[in-house]
């Protein structure tokens, strides 16, 4: 019986074996491309990826499949791509986490600086500071004063260790030199629910998630963490206008291939990315998300490489000072 079973197994393996073309850099791409999103479907990174993939697929003439490999702040999906064949058929679209997990996780199975061949920056979604509707302060200066005076009763919500809202909170507290009580949530959705219900006082979130509530007056907004005001919320001042310097930061997204991917392939991908970012449809959808594509000179391997390096250096001291790690 066992022998027969083995015979069958061998047969199955043989049947499944048939020739497939070996990837050549010159005729890349001649097969379906997978882009790994290291988060679950439906989130902001997933949305950004699907919009860009749709357009890149037309340029490259190949189907692009978006694969959601969620887990451990995105590091599981990133680790998968770091180990993948460097042939340009497995790519990664990861956000600012690429830089922050370098410090947040003390045991990362890959080195964010060397494990990937950067393709280009995609977009930068700014963060906004929002509060429950009936929170007393009306602008950023009032917020800073109020928070300092009531530091024992004010609560700041975040979406869990390592989340953008967590980084934003660390940055803000270090800037005003006042540690506050933070209430962590599992994702920004439930945090926003409790903010709307008045259970917690204030938080930061991406414009992507908050523009609707801000416009409807369901939450108070204090400022956007960007150098310029965002198009979707023209009345909202920047944090800098509100008097806090050096806090501007956004959730930037980058496209990566595994390290060792041939330069020709990376350049082809980068060109396709530039085309996608100039696509009027992508620009329109991005605007509705409260963001815009990066300028063409940023959608390059060099720009992304520099961004990863500078962001790792920027967040290292912030995270180490706060002493909060994800492992």
């Amino acid at each position: 019986m066992i022998k027969r079973l083995l015979g069958l197994l061998a047969g199955v393996v043989l049947v499944g074996t048939f020739a497939s073309p070996i990837a050549q850099a010159q005729d890349y791409p001649n097969d379906t491309i997978n882009i790994v999103v290291p988060f679950s479907a439906g989130g902001p990174t997933d949305t950004v990826t699907r919009l860009v993939a749709e357009s890149m697929s037309k340029t490259l003439g190949q189907q692009i499949i978006v694969e959601n490999v969620g887990g451990a702040g995105g590091t599981l999906g990133a680790a998968r791509v770091a180990k993948a064949e460097p042939d340009g058929y497995t790519l990664l679209l990861y956000h600012i986490g690429m830089a922050t997990t370098a410090t947040l996780y003390r045991k990362l199975p890959y080195d964010p600086k060397t494990a990937f061949a950067p393709v280009g920056l995609v977009t930068e979604v700014p963060m906004v500071m929002i509060a429950r509707k009936d929170f007393p302060p009306n602008n950023l200066q009032e917020l800073v004063t109020y928070v300092k005076e009531n530091k024992d009763t004010v609560t700041y919500a975040n979406a869990g260790v390592g989340a953008a809202s967590h980084l934003c909170g660390m940055l803000f507290m270090q800037a005003i030199e006042t540690p506050l009580t933070t209430v962590p949530y599992k994702g920004t959705g439930p945090a926003l629910t409790d903010l709307l219900g008045g259970q917690v006082d204030f938080m930061c979130d991406q414009t992507t998630n908050t523009t609707g509530q801000i416009k409807a007056g369901e939450v108070k907004a204090y400022g956007v963490f960007a150098d310029q005001r965002v198009e979707a919320l023209p009345d909202l001042p920047t944090i800098k206008e509100g008097g806090l310097e050096g806090l501007s930061f956004g959730i930037w997204h980058g496209l990566y291939a595994p390290a060792g991917t041939p330069d020709e392939v990376v350049n082809k991908l980068s060109e396709a990315l530039k085309v996608a970012l100039a696509d009027p449809n992508v620009i329109k959808r991005f605007a509705e998300l409260g963001t815009e594509p990066v300028p063409a000179d940023q959608a390059t391997p060099e720009a992304l490489k520099a961004k990863v390096a500078s962001e790792i250096d920027r967040w290292k001291p912030v995270i180490e000072t706060a002493g909060e790690y994800a492992d």
């Binding site: 027969r4 069958l8 199955v12 393996v13 049947v15 499944g16 074996t17």
Partner: peptide
């Protein structure tokens, strides 16, 4: 490694033999 076709065939084959009534 093997892809969906070969892998799912293996699953079916292995689990099928869990029953004593299975024959080739």
């Amino acid at each position: 490694g093997l892809g969906l076709v070969a892998s799912i065939a293996l699953v079916v084959l292995i689990s099928a033999y869990a029953s004593r009534r299975m024959h080739l």
